[in-house]
Design a protein around this nucleic acid. Structure first.
Lengths: 349, 349
DNA sequence: GTGAAAGCGCTAACAA
DNA sequence: TTGTTAGCGCTTTCAC
């Protein structure tokens, strides 16, 4: 199956002009006679001519497409991000090429190689959970490919970054639970090596300190696979709830963990919020319809995608090489549901 | 910011060969001496040479990328579809360009124009809700672009199609409600012009007939904007529940409508499933955590994406023009939750 | 105002 | 085995 389309040459031949004249007419140069121009335009229109973007790309040395690498496309947060990116990209005449690392560092490497061999003008990246070696990105950056990192970044990475205030997110959630009279709040994070997990934990600790609670390290748990492996959440929950000193609240640092913890509680017949209050990061829609409705820390994902895409396109289109890297910080939102009511009931009862 | 990379010419110059020799060495042709080959490969490796895919595309007249047009990326069903497409595409060495029509026919047109001007080898399409004129697609098909339609197709479209058995989906959901002793089941669909809505409605009617219930047209309602406009669902619900003869169950034909109906019931203080049972199409994850857990008809979205992508790539890579169009039908799944318990309680009580 | 020619990076037919 | 040449579709000097 081949897709043959008319070229400038075809038009030139049919009309008896040279290719360059046709090219000029099509691009509305002013050193061309009105009659020729009209002739060419009419004919081009008639045969439904569209320029070959590949040829344009080869000539212009840019493809007008940008890559997006995320952990998984079918994830509420990432799909919202892609949504935002696509809006801005299309507005600016760029195509968006999506790729998912699906949790594997190897995938991320091969995707990066595939995308970056110059078929994209720039790239938007959220690191795979397991990525610690970032040389495949720094290589590209050294070769001049603009990259904007969002959400899951690493401190060692240089480049534009778009983030929420992760520490504030951890703080807000924990603070909210404390205000609801929770006293033993467990923290469940994904990998302790994740940069943003560390920040969210810092926020958690800050909230505890401000309320003059001591930090109990036995309440801080990690799920290195981020909850993709259901057993790891289960294990953590067992550790927490078959201990002597059980938590009366859980704060989870990612979407997957929030949902998994909720499911675990249901399976273990732990009542939310009666026995344990729950709050955590999540960008799922409709968590207000959950049973109980969830208290979540929500990232402005579509907005993040838009900001990141604008930043990338600005960089791509800028003539001068960039020296300073921007770091955009977006607000986080606390959405209060019933899952975090915690000790309020116990106390008012 | 420009991204300069080494070319075959550069290597040729440095090593004192001709570009064609270098090209041959790099592509491991067998009519080249071992020594030259090694020399070239080593040097290419050293300078981190990667071929320019744009140039390759221009030469090969294909870009190794496929387009995907969906209504909205940040939607559970579509993001799962894209996930599946991406998996297969990457396996086969294709990039995936995503675009969202966001409900507008005009967007769909301009996206189609932008994508299709030969920068993609093929396209996967789910029609925008408002699309009735499909000439922008048939034009492309006539010009030879392979298109595979999935989910929201139109009868008038020719081309490969990947669908679930929509009628069976409508049947299964309705049948399930009937088995749970619901007797007045309302059907809420998106646009009556949508091909798949019609099919789902057929299934609904078939189930009613099989159970010897008459079809009450006053129980069949439509939301032309598919629930994007919250008021239209509200309006429909008011019509249904402020009537003399209220329904005791609702069957909804799309994800958005299912969720919106549930939310409406909550706002109108209509108890699910006590007062009204609810079942409907949805591909949201975690609807088992809803309050009550949802009974849903679920499409194998990731699988659909994979099947559609395989079909498209097969077509793209096939030499002969295609005459017969395949129509792949995938199974639907009924996931039973508490929302559809309906009259069971009333009767056993 | 228009045409000829070169070149973007690569491959392939043909020569040597 | 290697080099020369032409061409994919387009733009852009440089002549005329």
């Amino acid at each position: 199956m081949r897709f043959e389309a008319a070229t400038i040459k075809d038009i030139a031949r049919s009309l008896g002009f040279s290719p360059s004249t046709v090219s000029r007419a099509l691009r509305n140069c002013n050193d061309i006679s009105e009659t020729t121009k009209q002739l060419v335009l009419d004919y081009a229109n008639k045969i439904n001519y569209t320029p070959n973007p590949i040829a344009l790309s080869l000539k212009a040395r840019r493809s007008r497409s940008i890559g997006v690498i995320v952990h998984e496309i079918a994830d509420s947060f990432f799909s919202q991000i892609i949504n935002g990116i696509e809006c801005i990209a299309r507005e600016s005449g760029y195509n968006v090429i999506v790729a998912q690392s699906l949790g594997s560092y190897e995938n991320e490497m091969s995707i990066t190689r595939m995308l970056a061999s110059r078929s994209i003008d720039g790239c938007l990246v959220s690191l795979a959970p397991g990525t610690t070696d970032i040389s495949h990105f720094t290589n590209l950056q050294e070769r001049g490919l603009p990259i904007v990192f969002f959400d899951r970044t690493a401190e060692a990475l240089s480049g534009h970054k778009v983030l929420i205030d992760n520490k504030l997110g951890g703080f807000k959630g924990t603070h909210h639970l404390l205000k609801n009279h929770c006293r033993r709040i467990a923290f469940i994070g994904d990998s302790p090596h994740q940069y943003i997990t560390g920040l969210r934990l810092e926020g958690y600790k800050k909230a505890l300190s401000e309320h003059h609670f001591e930090i109990d390290e036995s309440l801080i748990k990690y799920c290195p696979y981020g909850g993709s492996d259901p057993y790891e959440v289960e294990t953590v929950m067992h550790q927490l709830f078959y201990a002597d000193n059980k938590p009366d609240a859980i704060f989870t640092s990612t979407d997957k963990l929030t949902i998994a913890s909720m499911r675990c509680c249901r399976d273990m017949k732990i009542n939310i919020p009666g026995t344990v209050a729950l709050a955590g990061f999540s960008n799922m829609d409709n968590t207000d319809l959950f049973c109980p409705s969830l208290t979540v820390i929500r990232q402005p994902a579509i907005q993040m995608g838009k900001v990141a895409a604008r930043l990338l396109i600005k960089t791509v289109e800028s003539k001068k090489p960039l020296i300073e890297f921007e770091r955009q910080m977006l607000p986080v939102e606390l959405r209060i549901g019933d899952s975090s009511k915690g000790r309020v009931h116990a106390i008012t009862a």
